Simulated assay, not measured.
Amino acid sequence: MKVCTDACVLGAYADVAGARILDIGTGTGLLALMTAQRNPNSLIDAVEIDADAFGQAAENIAASPFAKQVITIHERIQDFMASGRKYDRILTNPPFYTNHLRSPDSTVNRALHTDELPFSELIEAVVRLLEPEGQWWVLLPPYETGKLAKLASEAELSPFRQLALRHHAKKPVFRMVTGFSFQADNRSDEVLDIYEPDGRTYSTAFRNLLRDFYLIF
């Protein structure tokens, strides 16, 4: 799967201040690498179920300046025990399609459809692996964010910060970046427009957020 703009926003926006960080479904390794760039003192476990994606992530990470910070792990997150340790931060860009038409490519289906990682099992893994004072950051469309938040609340995980992502001010929100924790009190909500209303010029806020990662800025 190719790198997408909304995943880059997650990698640039999420709080990655922790010492131990977990990337669930690392794909190309994008979030793990962005985290390593932002937090040079972190140790990151990047878990991926798909063999081809795991291989690509391992190759990308090995070729980066951050290879000593990131470990790639080929395993289902449902089975991943992390040697009993827990994480200060967990990041994930999970599959979210349920009843949509399937692709003939099984790799695409695994990345986009929830069959192999239903929200309930994702939440179970997060509850098991997250430190009591840790944060879980998720990227999803608005409707799926609501579904996830409802299930997460049953596990005592609540949103404390949320970024709504739009193409520009005249377009609807198409993705939400949400921070969950076990100790959420005050909640902060923001909106980010990728472009100015002309639909072509990158907004100042988007440029500022992605400046350290986009070579064109």
Results as ranks from 00 to 15, higher is better:
I49T: 07
I49L: 15
D50Y: 05
T145A: 11
A152I: 01
I71P: 02
L157E: 09
R166Y: 07
A111G: 14
D45H: 14
V70R: 11
L130V: 01
L157M: 08
T114K: 13
L140H: 00
D88N: 12
A57P: 07
D115H: 13
I61F: 07
T107M: 14
G55A: 06
L165C: 05
A152F: 04
T114E: 09
R102S: 08
S83T: 10
R85L: 10
P94G: 03
S103H: 14
L91V: 03
P132N: 08
L117T: 11
G146V: 00
F160N: 12
L151E: 10
M81V: 12
K147E: 12
P94V: 01
Y87W: 03
A67F: 06
P159Y: 06
D88T: 05
T98F: 11
R102G: 06
L130N: 02
E59C: 08
N109A: 09
E59P: 00
F54C: 13
E59G: 07
L122A: 06
Q78M: 07
E48V: 05
S42G: 15
H100Y: 11
G134R: 00
I44L: 13
V108E: 13
A125Y: 00
Y87I: 00
R110K: 14
D79T: 10
W137I: 00
N41L: 14
P142N: 01
S106N: 14
P141K: 00
P95I: 03
Q69F: 04
I90K: 04
E116N: 12
L101N: 12
L139Q: 01
Q69W: 04
W136A: 00
K147L: 07
A111W: 10
W136C: 02
E48Y: 04
S120F: 05
Q135D: 06
Y143I: 03
E121L: 14
D79Y: 09
D45W: 06
R89W: 01
L130A: 05
S120E: 15
R161A: 12
T107G: 13
L101S: 13
E124M: 08
I90T: 02
